[in-house]
Nucleic acid binder design. Structure first.
Lengths: 120, 120
DNA sequence: GCTTAAATTGCCTATATAGGCATATGATTG
DNA sequence: CAATCATATGCCTATATAGGCAATTTAAGC
């Protein structure tokens, strides 16, 4: 009855722009919380919370470094998202054209054409 | 103060599993609402609402076909997601190894090694 | 125009945050 | 152990849904 938990998977985790920003920053290497907070102009608790979500879905890792805790990227979790969206690649890279669409439509609605009801 | 609107962009739209299911079904061609509802075992209003979100972020298109409304895929909107995640591909396809990580860490924390504080 | 079929929209509830702030927890150093 | 720096949590509020159901709109057909 409510929205899906953002902590459930990578899809939900990266739905939040702030978290995407964090991940992008981490591409350049590990970062301490305070640094991330400063770069992204967020408060420290805010940053910590986002990092927690990212950690729970396995997109980042932490390691203690003195008083600091350095967060590092664990991008493997983004792979499913990349692959899922990749399953639609044919629809935007040109290998999919109107003929494909026509054939697909026939597969589902063969009667549509019988009634001369196609839109083109 | 609240969660980001799921209607804001594709990232949010596909965070919902149901909507991903809908998009996958639509890969095979256009579908009427009732059909989608049946295939996904959802109520029809529920399906309509998800379709509305998908339409608002431009991931699907509609066209009237008699009493029915056929929804079709407009996957172009998934491209940004695919490309964004693709920006992390190096981290899981093997071209990125511990040396890269080491170099990246140095870039951010050169002193870490000076203090003999690395984790390996 | 009325009836029927197919979808959409409105209304209500429960729930999961995101953000702000204060406070607790951890680790380091003297 | 006390003091301090760096993070993580707890608590509270506002908000955006997702789901259930009823009612309204849209489109055919008679």
């Amino acid at each position: 009855m409510a929205r899906a938990a953002t902590t459930s998977d990578a899809f939900n985790a990266i739905a939040e722009p702030r978290r995407r920003d964090i991940l992008m920053l981490l591409r350049d290497g590990e970062r301490a919380v305070a640094e991330l907070a400063e770069d992204l102009e967020m408060t420290q608790p805010q940053t910590s919370k986002h990092l927690r979500v990212l950690r729970e879905v396995g997109l980042v890792q932490v390691r203690g470094a003195g008083k600091q805790r350095l967060y590092g990227l664990d991008a493997e979790g983004l792979r499913p998202v990349h692959e899922w969206t990749g399953g639609f690649e044919q629809f935007w890279n040109g290998s999919f054209d109107r003929l494909d669409a026509y054939v697909q439509r026939l597969a589902q609605y063969p009667s549509t054409t019988d009634r001369g009801d196609t839109d083109d």
